[in-house]
Design a binder for these strands. Structure first.
Length: 926
RNA sequence: GGGCCUAUAGCUCAGUUGGUUAGAGCGUCCGGCUGAUAACCGGGAGGUCAUCCGUUCGAAUCGGAUUAGGCCCA
């Protein structure tokens, strides 16, 4: 008789190899078929709604690993909340307008030597954006992200664009919007403003001028009693054309300065730059008269080196000791630092250069010159005024226009602003920040410090791909008109035709027939050319996408760069437009780094495209990687890490497979053994699993998915695979198929498998679904299941404590067995007989209590408990100073069926190769 | 240069209010099994807790500095 046929070996169609790249597609089309997203929404939701508002990625390239991680995290959160009984609408979106796409499109036109109109550019941008929305959508879907893909939002859609303007209108009505000055990079060749991203740094040959600014006033006696006529500040610059706009000289308050005497002239400059400066000026004979701190220069007034005008001494921390004299020529109209400090000191913002780079009337004698001629004229004027000490040339890194490659200049321009301190706006925003839950909690520092000190929001951009600012200018007197009634009309038109209408329609179509300039009564107008900052687009998303009752929503989750970005702009827009914050809690995740801890960049060549991971290993591997990482800080990804994750996945998958295999003949309706009737070990495993469930729920609640991963993974590896399942094999395989002890094990295994599948479904969605199908559950998808409730009745701490001690004994037995295995005494542990002698009474009692279970717990054939130590062998293994473990060969013959050695083998004449236990099983069957 | 953050075995993570010899799993090495089999089980080796200084009877843990890395500014 072939006894192998009489044992209950595991059997399952769930394959060991996942073949995820193929299988996942099948599961995803199943989800699509049943419209799993829609069905989820229609299920009972006892806990109400949970709203995660999706931060829109930019639609200009394939998704990168960080975006994949971001979307997977969102998906995990949504799926978890769904399992908990929430209704979870999740509307993904895309950010479409903006510079990168516009720049890409303009480059394409340039290559074809075409000069497109604005309308044409916008058309191409729109097409480009649409294309990448489609590409990214497919890529996100391939990750297994379940969302409202059919109704995703686009910031370039008509509805969204109209909403942006409605919010802008609200700001206008409430008095947030004003016209103000702002220094920007400007290309005089292209006659356009340049964003930071449009600037390329390269070497440029510039002038290098040393000048002296004569002293005019010295109220605090810095120069003491020196001859005032011969006192000067020593100043260096590389941009002569900015001299006409000079209004101040900046000293660093903390630096040391000196006054030196040279040929009876007295110069003030930074101490540290004294030697290099004087050697540059070829001055050998000098004498240091005095040392002072930069802050002591306050109150000095110098004379402009050309004009009869003051140039006052001010203090600024942007002064460096790298080049120059430590006394910085300051023209508030021609530099970012200069501007900021100019505002601080209430200086006029003088910017006497027009868009073509021609000096204006404000530059007095230089009026009408271009910058190149202006440079020369300024130098001549300096020479004439005898304030030029040296003229030279240097080559240095200088910003150039990305398009025409010419050097750019700094100009001060008039822009549209949102006033941050209007109507206690900043204060209210800060209060909202305090009331928001931040994960991790330290992340509040970043947004708080930013909002506390942020300047007014410059809302206008001199660009094309975006939402036009609905303002008008009087052609006669240049008066800007920002009228709520006019804006309303613009919105009306744009709602139907989209924001392109602003560009295609004539200005008259937006204005009432009799509209006159409020200032000069002229009837001639032109449209504003500037667009809104695209951060205003995305900052409006919660108002454009969510229903009013969904605001503030439950959670935002984005990368840590968004403190300054989307978290900030959304808050500014939300508080400004509605007074309500956009979110109740905000989670931030780190960036993806390579194996060395460096940031992943396409250009650095160390980026791992998520598509590659998905194609090679499957989305569940990528998802498991996301779940395994502590994403509150930066996360590493590399081939090795992915390999480890793949190994971990295999282990989990095989655990699932083994559980499924052993449930092949288990009908939960007929065969289920209630908890209280199960054997001890089957109750013990429920205790352990219940603890695991508690841990995972707690971790999910705190969005600490890596703790879910570790908890489940360790449960599978340590508790299940290497102990419980290993030990249970004999019972599962060799006991009567319908025996209560076997059904008892199966009942625990069934509960564990089912709930593990649910617990892991937010992470290993595809694999869980695959398991779910084989478990033939009522719900057609695991995503419709309910997160398992922790059943306190399944916790038995007394039992757990006893088994903890038994496991400890087991550890000792395993070491003792290994020693004997290495000596060649045994191979398989079933070949062993273990004799135990415990010194402590407690341990002795415990072992006696579990006498019958010990062989199966150790997976050996026999266990003897000794009353004294007289029969112990010389090389007995001592464990924990209280237990002697002796290993001998098992007695009796090996049962052909269960492989356990027993002295009962051979006693039965019908089945001479079987042990007593197996005889019973086989006879009952036969 | 400024703000915020990170640093524990090759990898992912533990390490409670400072308290013995810093833990787990994976990987690696060695071995077993061949009834989870491109699986499964066991055992061993692996760490100056980034570095330095300090507080303390005692520091991975508290404080300071430095280094490396990240994000955001300048």
């Amino acid at each position: 008789m072939n006894y192998k046929d009489t044992i209950n070996l595991p059997s399952t169609p769930f394959p060991m190899k996942g073949n995820l790249p193929v299988r996942e597609l099948e599961i995803q089309s199943f989800w699509e078929e049943i419209d799993v997203y829609e069905k989820c929404l229609n299920q009972p939701s006892p806990k109400g709604d949970f709203i995660l508002h999706d931060g829109p990625p930019y639609s200009n390239e394939e998704i990168h690993l960080g975006q994949a991680m971001n979307k997977i995290l969102k998906d995990i959160i949504c799926k978890y909340r769904k399992l908990q009984g929430y209704r979870v609408p999740f509307v993904p979106g895309w950010d479409n307008h903006g510079l990168p796409i516009e720049r890409e499109i303009i480059q394409q036109f340039q290559k074809r030597k075409e000069k497109p109109t604005k309308v044409k550019i916008r058309e191409s941008c729109r097409k480009f954006a649409h294309n990448f929305v489609d590409v990214q959508k497919q890529q996100f879907k391939r990750l297994g992200v379940i969302a409202d893909w059919k109704n995703s939002y686009l910031t370039m859609s008509k509805e969204y664009e109209a909403k942006i303007l409605e919010i802008f209108l609200e700001f206008v009505k409430k008095g947030y919007i004003y016209r103000g000055l702002r220094p920007i990079h400007w290309c005089t060749t292209c006659e356009t403003a340049l964003a930071l991203a449009e600037i390329e740094y390269k070497d440029k040959k510039s002038y290098s001028l040393w000048m002296k600014f004569p002293l005019r006033k010295d109220s605090k006696g810095v120069f003491q009693n020196l001859n005032k006529e011969r006192c000067f500040a020593l100043v260096w610059t590389t941009t002569p054309w900015t001299i006409p706009a000079n209004l101040a000289l900046t000293f660093h308050p903390a630096f040391d300065y000196v006054i030196v005497e040279v040929d009876q002239d007295y110069y003030i400059l930074a101490k540290e730059l004294l030697k290099t400066t004087l050697s540059e000026l070829q001055i050998e004979n000098y004498r240091v008269i005095k040392e002072l701190k930069g802050k002591d220069t306050d109150g000095l007034v110098f004379k402009h080196p050309i004009f009869d005008r003051d140039s006052i001494a001010i203090l600024g921390r942007f002064v460096t000791l790298e080049l120059g004299t430590g006394v910085v020529h300051t023209a508030p109209g021609h530099g970012r630092d200069d501007f900021e400090i100019g505002i601080k000191y209430n200086l006029p913002i003088l910017s006497p250069v027009d868009e073509k780079g021609i000096f204006t009337k404000e530059s007095l004698q230089f009026s009408g010159l271009n910058l190149k001629d202006g440079d020369k004229a300024v130098i001549e004027a300096l020479k004439k005024a005898k304030t030029l000490l040296k003229e030279d040339r240097i080559t240095h890194s200088y910003p150039h226009c990305w398009r025409c490659k010419n050097p750019v200049v700094f100009r001060t321009t008039v822009q549209w602003f949102m006033k941050i301190d209007h109507d206690r706006h900043r204060e209210r925003a800060l209060k909202a920040i305090e009331n928001t839950k931040w994960f991790p909690s330290e992340s509040i520092n970043r947004i708080k410090s930013f909002v506390e000190s942020r300047p007014d929001w410059c809302l206008s951009r001199q660009k094309t791909w975006g939402v036009g600012i609905p303002a008008f200018y009087c052609k006669n007197c240049s008066e800007p008109v920002l009228d709520p009634h006019l804006i309303e009309k613009v919105i009306e038109i744009l709602k139907n035709e989209g924001s392109d209408a602003w560009y295609t329609k004539d200005v008259s179509e937006f204005l009432p027939d009799d509209f006159k300039c409020p200032k000069c009564r002229s009837k001639d107008f032109e449209k504003e050319k500037d667009i809104l900052d695209v951060w205003f687009d995305s900052g409006s998303s919660h108002l454009a996408v969510l229903k009013p009752n969904e605001i503030p929503c439950d959670v935002y989750i984005e990368g840590s760069d968004q403190h300054r970005g989307w978290f900030n702009t959304s808050l500014m827009v939300g508080i400004g437009a509605t007074g309500k914050p956009p979110y109740k809690s905000v989670i931030t995740h780190g960036f993806t780094l390579d194996e060395k801890g460096y940031a992943m960049h396409k250009s650095a060549g160390n980026a791992i495209p998520p598509q590659k991971i998905v194609d090679k290993y499957g989305a569940d591997i990528l998802r498991l990687w996301v779940a395994s990482s502590n994403y509150f800080v930066d996360v590493n990804c590399s081939d090795e890490i992915l390999h480890r994750i793949k190994d971990a996945y295999r282990k989990i998958r095989n655990t699932f497979r083994f559980l499924l295999g052993n449930l092949f003949d288990f009908d939960r309706k007929k065969d289920f053994v209630p908890y209280k009737e199960r054997t001890e070990i089957d109750r013990w495993i429920m205790h352990k699993f219940t603890l695991c469930m508690k841990e995972t729920e707690d971790a999910y609640e705190k969005y600490e998915f890596y703790k879910v991963y570790h908890s489940v993974y360790n449960f599978c590896v340590i508790t299940l695979s290497s102990f419980y399942l290993d030990v249970s094999k004999d019972r599962l395989y060799t006991y009567g198929a319908k025996s209560k002890k076997r059904r008892s094990a199966q009942s625990s295994m069934y509960e564990i498998l089912k709930n593990l599948a649910i617990i892991l479904s937010p992470i290993l969605s595809h694999t869980s679904e695959e398991v779910w199908k084989l478990l033939s559950q009522q719900e057609e998808s695991v995503l419709f299941a309910t997160f398992p409730k922790v059943n306190e009745a399944n916790l038995d701490y007394g039992l757990a404590e006893r088994w903890e001690r038994l496991l400890n004994v087991r550890d000792g037995v395993l070491v003792a067995l290994e020693k004997k295995r290495n000596e060649g005494l045994i191979g398989n542990s079933l070949g062993a007989r273990v004799s135990l002698f415990a010194e402590g009474e407690d341990l002795k009692t415990l072992l006696n209590t579990y006498k019958d279970e010990l062989p199966s717990i150790f997976i050996v054939s026999q266990v003897a408990l000794l009353e004294d130590n007289s029969s112990l062998s010389a090389d007995v293994y001592k464990h924990n100073d209280e237990l002697f473990i002796d290993v001998q060969k098992a007695k009796g013959g090996k049962c052909e069926r269960c492989w356990i050695y027993s002295e009962t083998v051979g006693k039965n004449t019908q089945h001479p190769t079987l042990c007593e236990k197996c005889c019973k099983v086989v006879c009952k069957k036969g």
